[in-house]
Amino acid sequence: MLLLTFSDIGLIVTLVIIAAGLGLILKLALKGKEIDRRIIFIFIFFSVASPIIFQIKFSEKATAVVKSIYDKIDNLPEGSKILISFDFDPAMAPEVQPMAIVLGRHALIKGHEVVFMSLWTTGQSLLTEIINEYILPDFPEKQEFIDYVTLGFKAGNEGVLKVIATDFKKMFPVDNNGRPLDSIPIFDGVKSCSDFDLVISIGGGKPGPKEWILFVTDPSNIPMAVGVAAVIAPQMYPYYPAQVLGIMGGVKGAAEYESEFIGNYERFKDMKTPGLLTMGPQTLAHTVIMAFIIIGNIIYFRKRKKEAKS
């Protein structure tokens, strides 16, 4: 049975209107007419506003760099230990927060044991907020210390990393609430970072993913995945695939992951996906801009042809 959701109808309406509008403009363009900039403004406004109102999401096909992170978490045996470090501040949050949310959910639903921490002072409150307000409400059955634990922020930048690379408890004798790590079941058998099955750093500044690679995961050959702001992504590519198994770059990376996640987990089909929701308007707007560039060139060549004739 074909059931259309509110979003689907919105998407169809939006696409029809944009396509019809562009077609009309193309027709005018073929006659050699220039387009008023305000018409472009209307298209941009519409292509951004409409996906927000209708909550349109395009399914993103995960690129190999993102898919490999998803597959890694999905294929690890239940009960694997994953370390996720939130190395960002509020300014960077819009881009990377969606990654933190979806990674946390994915790791928990697969039954892995997750350890959260942060190298940034400002990351502490974000860490608490993301875990308590976004991730945990969906997992009432999960127990702190058994399924997940929050270590909080640790001062010392790269210094922290150098220490935990060889001895975790030396840097973190206790967790965020002052509970000794020795009494936390997750840390049974955890001596250093090498005892984690996967380490993920989400961030974009310093210290961040790059420092994790240099000081922790590369020297000890620990599986490492990173999530970074879009501007940093190009700097991370040289590490792929030898030193990091995958990279999520900017909102697009988050959206690809979310798409893969909600596609495979029925339970989260309707979850809020900030990455995909921001990508919707961006994709449409990009497409509209590219369409206008093409139309602009058509107008230009028309004109030149005419001038050549006369």
Partner: peptide, 13 residues
């Protein structure tokens, strides 16, 4: 272009 679009998304949001 993408980061400029996010600004507008923020406002409309």
């Amino acid at each position: 272009v993408m980061s400029r679009m996010s600004l507008l998304i923020g406002r409309l949001d």
